[in-house]
Amino acid sequence: MSAARPSTAAATTGGGVIRTVLGDLDPAEFGVCDAHDHLFLRSPRLPGEELDDPAAAERVLRAFAAAGGRALVQWTPYGMGRGASALAGLSRATGVHLVAATGLHQAVHYEPELLAGLYDGLAELFTAELTTGLRDAPAGVRAGLIKVAGDYHDLGPHTRRVMAAAAEAHHATGAPIAVHHELGTAAPDVLDLLCGQYGVPAHRVILGHLNRLPDLRLHRHLADSGAYLALDGPSRAHHATDHHLFDTVAALVEAGHVDRLLLGGDTTTRTARHSPGPTHLLTSVGPRLDREFGPGLSRRLLVTNPAEALAVPRSAA
């Protein structure tokens, strides 16, 4: 992994836009952001736990907006019930900017027949959803990032195929690539593949779930590459991510990586929706960050960094 960190100044000086479901947005207007969450999600691995209720999604967004939230990034990719037909209406109704994802998750979240029909045209699918519109949404509703996923301490054939397509779509559009890491593992392998083999700039990669593996030395090494680290999961009851969050933030802030950190709720099940959800980032996590690390840190992690991480060059918009 390269230790060089490209400048992200373009995102904050008019050089980029954020692609929301209602159109392209100046990053300065994006506001307080939950950088990794799910309003809709369906998987055969989670029977009975589907997030498929637009009314429930609207309640989540209204509560988030009432607490000061202005933007939410949904990492649910293609073929997992991402609620694409409802996203634009929800954004208009609640005033919350929504960013949708293209891409694919791990193979276990799909029927084999669906994947077999997609593999030969993955890069074209991802690129079209970023530039023309989501297949399952009204015309003009486009994705703003590419979601992919690693395996547990490994990158198998499906993963490598999807990541190759994601890299091709990135080069065609400039879109960031957001990565699910199974229990926080295989992040160095992901960067070696995406950045080393396929030439994706590290600052265009968002590494998710890393606080599920509380290896602070590894986190510093990954941040050195220039990639963004999404610390997510406070919506998950009885999950260890809450226990590690502030130690992880402290280690990375002390190492000079405050500009690499993003925060997200990552609500993935109907049961988890009864937990605090994205509002918790604003009412609990953000204030505590400012108390422990000084005023302004929560704004950096919830406003400035997401706007930079998600901006697409205007030339590619």
Rank of each mutant, 00 (worst) to 15 (best):
R299K: 14
T268V: 14
L213R: 15
A251N: 07
P278S: 11
N211P: 05
A230D: 14
R291F: 00
R299F: 04
L310F: 15
R273I: 09
L262C: 06
Y228W: 15
R314D: 09
D247C: 08
R299G: 09
D232M: 09
L263P: 05
P278T: 07
L282E: 03
P313H: 14
N305T: 14
A227P: 06
G265V: 03
A316C: 13
E292I: 00
Y198D: 01
V249C: 00
V312Y: 03
R220T: 12
T267G: 03
R204N: 11
P234Y: 09
F293Q: 03
N305S: 12
G286W: 03
R212F: 12
P306D: 07
L301Y: 08
N211K: 02
A251G: 15
R220A: 14
L213V: 03
H257Q: 11
L218A: 07
A240C: 12
L282V: 06
H280C: 12
L263S: 02
L252I: 06
R220G: 10
T271S: 14
R270I: 02
L245D: 00
P276D: 09
P295I: 01
G196H: 03
Y198M: 10
L282D: 04
A307G: 10
L231Y: 11
R314Q: 12
D259K: 06
A251M: 05
G226M: 05
D215Y: 08
V253D: 11
A237D: 11
A240G: 13
L231M: 14
N211W: 00
P295Q: 15
C195R: 06
C195M: 00
P313N: 10
F293S: 00
D259F: 05
D266E: 14
T248Y: 01
G233R: 06
E254W: 01
L281A: 06
A237S: 13
L210Q: 12
G265L: 01
L297E: 05
Y198E: 11
R288K: 11
H239F: 13
S225L: 08
L229T: 04
R204S: 11
S235G: 14
A250L: 10
A240K: 12
P306T: 02
A311R: 11
L210A: 07
E254S: 14
L262D: 06
S235L: 06
A317V: 15
P287K: 08
P313T: 04
L213Q: 15
G294Q: 03
L207F: 09
R220M: 03
L310Y: 15
A251V: 11
L216W: 11
A251P: 00
T248V: 14
L222M: 09
G264P: 02
L222E: 01
L310S: 02
E308T: 14
A255T: 09
G265E: 10
G208K: 07
V249M: 04
P278I: 04
R273D: 07
H221R: 14
E292S: 10
L261H: 07
V205H: 08
P278K: 05
D224V: 01
H221D: 14
S275I: 00
D215C: 10
V205Q: 08
A311V: 12
V200I: 08
V205M: 07
T268G: 00
H221I: 10
V303M: 09
Y228M: 02
T248R: 04
R300F: 03
S315C: 05
S275A: 15
R260C: 12
R217E: 15
L229I: 13
G294V: 02
